[in-house]
Every structure is written in structure tokens, then in C-alpha cells.
Amino acid sequence: MCGTCGCGEDNSIRISKPGKENKLHHHHNNHNHTHDGNEHSHDHSHQHYHDHSHSNDHLSETSEHAHDHHEHHHDHSHKTEIQLELDILQKNNLLAERNKGYFEAKNIIALNMVSSPGSGKTCILERTIKHLSKDIKLSIIEGDQQTMNDANRIESAGAPVVQINTGSGCHLDADMINKAVKELEPENNSILIIENVGNLICPSMFKLGESKRIVIISITEGEDKPIKYPDMFRSSDICIINKTDLAPYLDINIEKIKEYALHVNHHLKFFEMSAKTGEGMDEWYEWLKKLNI
């Protein structure tokens, strides 16, 4: 499987534009993989997990986890400790910084939209494109595990778009954005909106080089979502509360959602809207216009 995205080998990353779906981009090829040069066989299943002895005690502070069936003791050799103090996500972070530099140089504001599946991200984008494309140059990167559906919707709405299909991968990463941006070629002085894979957990760890992260919650999801999935709310700058048109039919208190969200992240700025009726979206449009100056 791929180290960057955790996707299966036969389930590779695809980057494509609507109408050019055959344009494959095997993400793994251009990638410096750990197992480069090694035969990497995938026919062993996870069953082996049960075969080795885990000496870790999950209650203790340090868990050790030895692969006993491989261990050899070379008592004659000298041990050397290499101090590293390296951030495990440094590769992604560095690439994200590189993307960020590229965006800044071209005066492109990049926004990373994250949410649970179905919160209304694509609907918000469709309406925003229709309403703003005369004032602002907008382009979109769509992230989904499968299908071109969202990219096709964006194209019909009238914005340039590139679709990333992550296969079994559960988040976008900076490398995928780097490649997608090369396909998309967003204009200078524009806004690039990235719709991440619908998933409230994994995308929070992977910076893409965005200037702002936007978490979307629809009011059908329950008031306590922000404290159930705090990482996403913690790492975002903006919170859109969508589907407000449904409020009369639901027993939900929007103020309560905000209160929970602020407990997790007191810097959050909110927009309340209905992407279905357009209600409440003017404030969002104004905010985007200001970003674009």
C-alpha cells in the first residue's frame, strides 16, 4: 500500500479533469517510497498480527512491541543511538509549505473544506460559483474516494476543476494537491477551494498548504459533533453551519453547536447558511470577496 495515503496498490490515486477521465496519474510513481528497491509483497494478510507476541501493556506509559519471530541478538556488535527528534509528518508538512509558497507567490488564496460526508460542501461550492464567478476567479479541487460526480457538478456550475480520487485513502495530502494544482493551473489573484474527502477524522492531520481551513457541519449532524470530533474543529479557522433551512423540522439548537465548537477552539468564526435556499450566504460571499483583495 501507499505510504502517503494508505491506499491499496490496486486502488491508486487518480487525478483527472471532467471529460478527460482517462488521464491517469499514478501518484505512487513520482514518489520516494520507503520500500523503493524492495520487493514489497502484498499477499500476506493481517493475520500475522496475531502470531507475534506483543509485549506491550497498554496501560503503561511505554509500550514495546517486538517482532520476536525476527529478532536476532548480535551481542558482539555495538549499538549506536541516533537522536532524531523528527516530526513524523514532516514530509507532508514540508510539501504543504511548498504549496503554500506557490500559492502566496501567485496571490492565490487556498481554502481547505473538511466535513463529514454529505454536509453540503459541493452544494455550497455550486452556489458560490454561480454567485461569485463574475467577481472572483474561483477554481476547485475535488477530493473523493471514487467518482467524478462532484467535479462534474462543479464544472456545470462553471468553475475550472480537477478531481482527485483517493481510492481507499481517507484524506487528501500535500503531494496530491501539488500534482492536482499542476493540472488545474489556477490563475493569479484567484481563490482555490479544495473540497477534502468527506471524513471528520483523518484530514485534520494533513496540511495541504491552505491559508484557511473551513469545517462544515450540517445541523442534521447533532449539537455535540464538535466535541465528538474535536481535532477537525480545533484545526479549523472557520466553521460553516449548513442546512439551516431544516431547523424548523429538527430539535436542534444552533447556538449549542457554536458553544461546543468554541469550547474546542475559541478562535472559530461562524457562517450559518442554507446551500439549498441560499439563506445566510451573503455574509460568506462578502468574506470571500475580502479574502480576494
Binding site: H44, H46, H48, E61, T62, H65, A66, H67, H70
Partner: peptide, 22 residues
């Protein structure tokens, strides 16, 4: 830990003791 079991195969870590400090 579960993921490491899979990821270390055929790598320099294949025989390594993996210590995780919480």
C-alpha cells in the same frame, strides 16, 4: 502499532523493536 506491523515489512525496520512513548 497494528499499522506498523504491516508497514515495517521488507524495510529497515523489519526486525526493529518499536517503542512508543505516550
Amino acid at each position: 502499532e497494528f499499522a506498523m506491523d504491516e508497514a515495517v515489512k521488507n524495510s529497515v525496520l523489519q526486525n526493529a523493536k518499536i517503542k512508543i512513548r505516550k
